[in-house]
Nucleic acid binder design. Structure first.
Length: 729
DNA sequence: ATACATACC
DNA sequence: TACTGGTATGTAT
């Protein structure tokens, strides 16, 4: 209610007002800060546009209130009943068995910069530019300086603020180190951004119960192996490794002087317990030892709650929400709706207008909400009100779009606009090439000097990827806009080009045959609808399980880092060197190999196949992807032939059963060969086979960890992270 | 399919 | 002087 009053006072300026929904921003002099923000903004084009958008939101709210006024008791009752039915249903499927952890690095970019420049330690600082800040340290937050605030306003709030330019390459590198640790607790962890991830600790905890202390003991000083390399190579001595980032940070108390706290090697160590909290504390400890940066974590039975929990004891803290219905419901009652991921400024305002500020209100008003909000929206709200969220962490899906945009000083000349447009297209085309993508939809984004944003899109009947193809479309879209406005010029402050509707991922899917499809030639094709149950065994599964973020990621990513000089990775499917350091490129290559292998295992043993388009595509795409890989020493065909054959092979029926032509198969049925250990398996039960493959993969990890190798084939090196390059707010 | 809005970091 | 950039998704037409 306090929040409500405040919001009311700020009235229609809520867009401009300080957003203190962040850790380290409690108990500030909001009025004073807001006054400064307003003074800095008022009258600007930006401000005027924000006012306009504020009005739009207000109108939306008015409309909603009108709708609300027309709702009858009857309708409400009915809606209420409907909601309750659904709630009961959801309640029945509540799953409290998983242990989900959300980890979030504290003031990540800022912390990295402070680490590498200790003079900044006690100063208010932020990372970004005079135009925009990415993040700020906690000193700066006391002044109201926060992410997504322009630097020049931040400077007014805090004249001593030091602004450090962003250095993404560095953050990416640090992020990679942190992710190596994540992978040891959950190889399938999902990164949200460079500084944030969701982990499922359930399996780790089960293992951990039987772990000896030695596996739960961690040294205070990073071993020389893991020693992080500072840019200035200044490796700090003995203690005080971590700079004091936060005056109020509850330090993770070392057992430096404990009886058994000092090992023979001279480094202090700490033994962690087997509980969740100990495991998470251990993970955070290791992150800090390795990177000299602190992280916070939330532990809860689902992703939605874990995310909220990680914020609770930030910085350098953790919070566990017990896995009981009661604890969850209690927790949710007092939770402000704005804390929930997915409920932003606008949704908050609309809910506030209905008298809803906490999740308890949400629960009370669900009947009403179901009548005022879209189905997806109220379903989400209902789940939130019940403290429900995803209990399984989905794999990061393939990208759906790729774009680039740039802000600049007013650009009004048609010539310049066109050449800028071309530049953007060049950038996008380059990125598209790197990932071997082609897309059918090109979108042009324009923002004029009044901050009004326009997007114009065109979908082609075919996919494009080159500069010329993209520019041909973007240019037309731009010209149309120019013509529409003439004789006035377009006065632009931003232009962007996006490409979407990719075919390399979208179009391939329907063509994809599940592994079952070729392991049991005839079956899939003849029945035509054996999909559902088989999905789990297809390429997705294989790549997800073993190569993408699989168990191999732990050690191999370290390896890849160390052998960084060579700048090449080995594809686990075709075993060729992929000359790239871009993990997206590499993953793409693997996906390509996997899908080709699973679609057409036979083609590689049959050279004279007529319409072998997929093989051609495969080679073409591989070449595009590996644009600068080492020249193959062998003939490509035979190389590919051999390697793929060893990975995926059906015994007995090499020529038949292509995807489009179901053919006879052996009476005995196929013999399955494990792609890891290369041994044929007796059982033709795919569940058993799959299990065997999993075991093999795990075995491989263990061997790797022990510095050994098993089969004649060297275990593939795979780095397990995608999606680099986000910002931190 | 297109345009715009919201949300996340 | 100066208010981002990249991606996904929801909503409306």
């Amino acid at each position: 209610d306090d929040a409500c009053m405040r919001k009311c006072r700020e009235g229609f300026l809520s867009r401009m007002a300080l957003n203190d929904n962040k850790a380290g921003m409690e108990g500030l002099d909001r009025d004073k800060i807001n006054k400064i923000i307003m003074e800095s903004s008022k009258g600007s084009r930006f401000y005027e546009n924000e006012l306009k958008r504020e009005q739009q939101v207000n109108q939306r709210i008015e409309k909603m209130m009108l709708q609300k006024a027309q709702i009858t008791e009857q309708q409400l009752k009915k809606a209420q009943a409907e909601v309750e039915r659904m709630a009961t249903e959801l309640e029945r499927s509540r799953d409290l068995s998983r242990v989900i952890v959300h980890v979030d690095m504290d003031a990540f970019y800022a912390a990295v910069e402070i680490r590498d420049c200790p003079e900044l330690k006690d100063k208010p600082m932020a990372v970004g530019s005079m135009s925009m800040l990415s993040t700020s340290n906690y000193h700066a937050r006391k002044y109201g300086v926060r992410a997504a605030m322009p630097g020049f306003i931040a400077k007014k709030l805090c004249p001593n603020l030091v602004i450090v330019p962003t250095n993404f390459a560095k953050y990416r590198a640090v992020s990679g180190e942190v992710r190596e640790i994540f992978a040891e607790y959950d190889p399938h962890f999902q990164s949200v951004s460079l500084d944030e991830a969701y982990l499922d600790f359930t399996d780790h905890l089960e293992q951990r119960q039987s772990w000896p202390e030695s596996l739960r003991t961690h040294r205070f000083h990073a071993s020389s192996e893991e020693q992080i390399k500072l840019p200035q190579e200044a490796v700090p001595e003995e203690k005080d490794l971590s700079p004091v980032l936060f005056d109020d940070s509850p330090s993770s108390s070392p057992c430096l002087s404990g009886p058994e706290g000092v090992g023979a090697a001279g480094g202090a160590f700490e033994v962690f317990g087997t509980s969740v909290e100990e495991a998470v504390r251990e993970m955070r400890f290791r992150i800090e030892q390795k990177t000299m940066l602190t992280a916070s974590a939330g532990i809860a039975p689902n992703m939605m709650l874990a995310k909220v929990c990680s914020d609770k004891n930030k910085p350098n803290g953790q919070y566990r929400l017990p896995s009981t219905r009661e604890a969850v419901m209690d927790f949710v009652q007092n939770l402000p709706v704005r804390k929930v991921s997915g409920i932003g400024k606008v949704s908050e305002k609309m809910l506030n207008a209905l008298g809803i500020s906490s999740c308890s209100h949400l629960g009370q008003q669900m009947g009403l909400l179901s009548l005022l909000f879209s189905e997806t929206a109220w379903h989400h709200l209902l789940q939130v009100s019940l403290g429900l969220g995803s209990t399984f962490i989905p794999r990061h899906e393939e990208r759906k779009s790729m774009s680039t945009e740039r802000t600049f000083k007013e650009l009004s000349k048609v010539e310049e606009q066109l050449s800028l447009c071309r530049e953007l297209c060049e950038d996008v085309a380059e990125d598209m090439k790197e990932e071997g993508l082609k897309g059918k939809t090109v979108t042009l984004k324009l923002k004029n000097v009044s901050f009004e944003v326009k997007t114009r899109a065109l979908t082609l009947p075919y996919a494009v990827a080159t500069v010329d193809e993209i520019f041909a479309v973007a240019k037309d879209l731009l010209k149309t806009e120019i013509d529409n406005e003439s004789p006035q010029p377009l006065r632009l402050r931003l232009m962007g080009v996006r490409i979407s509707a990719f075919v390399s991922s979208d179009d391939k899917k329907p063509l994809q045959r599940s592994i079952i499809g070729f392991l049991q030639p005839g079956k899939t094709d003849s029945s035509g609808s054996s999909q559902g149950m088989n999905q789990k065994l297809d390429k997705e599964h294989l790549s997800n399980h073993s190569f993408q973020t699989g168990p191999l990621g732990v050690e191999s990513s370290t390896k890849a880092n160390k052998s960084n000089l060579s700048e090449s990775l080995t594809c686990p499917v075709c075993f060729r060197q992929v000359e790239t350091t871009d993990l997206n490129v590499f993953n793409r290559h693997i996906d390509q190999c996997l899908s080709d292998a699973s679609i057409k295992p036979n083609q590689w043993t049959v050279f004279d196949t007529e319409s072998d388009l997929d093989l051609e595509n495969h080679q073409k795409e591989c070449e595009e992807v590996e644009s600068n890989r080492v020249p193959p020493q062998e003939d490509q065909h035979s190389l590919e032939n051999d390697s793929l054959q060893t990975v995926l092979l059906i015994n007995g029926d090499n020529k038949t059963a292509t995807s489009s032509q179901p053919q006879s198969h052996n009476d005995k049925g196929p013999i399955l060969i494990c792609p890891v250990c290369q041994l044929s398996q007796d059982s033709d039960d795919l569940t058993i086979f799959n299990h065997h493959v999993d075991l093999c993969l795990n075995r491989e990890v263990l061997h790797e960890l022990g510095g050994q190798t098993l089969s004649p084939i060297n275990p593939p090196s795979v780095i397990n992270s995608k999606a680099l390059g986000e910002c931190v707010y």
